[in-house]
Amino acid sequence: MEGVKFWRKPLDWEMIQVTRGRVHIFEDRCKGCGYCIAYCPRDVLSFTDRFNRKGYHVPSALKEEECVNCHFCEIICPDFAIYSEEIPQPKEIEL
């Protein structure tokens, strides 16, 4: 967990797994509304200069390592153009 500091090891540390996710984008379905970019809680996505087949600017996961697999982009996308899936993580403890 980057940027999070604990003053002691949390009691439920073994139970809490911070998930990591990977975003998949179907560029040809995207209509460039920008909902996923505006409402991503970790600001993973940004607009790019590229165009898709229909001439819309498509988002790209520029900070992919920040994704926590919350699926919000997946559910708010009106065009079924984006989803996230979990990357299995080895447990690492930072104190």
């Binding site: 998949h24 179907f26 040809d28 379905r29 209509k31 460039g32 509304c33 920008g34 909902y35 229909k54 819309y56 997946e74 559910i75 708010i76 996308c77 009106p78 065009d79 079924f80 153009a81 989803y83």
Partner: peptide, 24 residues
């Protein structure tokens, strides 16, 4: 896409405008 199993994917992308709330 996880919802593809419930969609007629041959008809996607749908006709709704960019940002239309019906898709959501």
């Amino acid at each position: 896409h996880p919802y593809d199993e419930l969609l007629r994917t041959d008809r996607i992308p749908h006709i709704w405008c960019p940002g239309c709330g019906i898709g959501t």
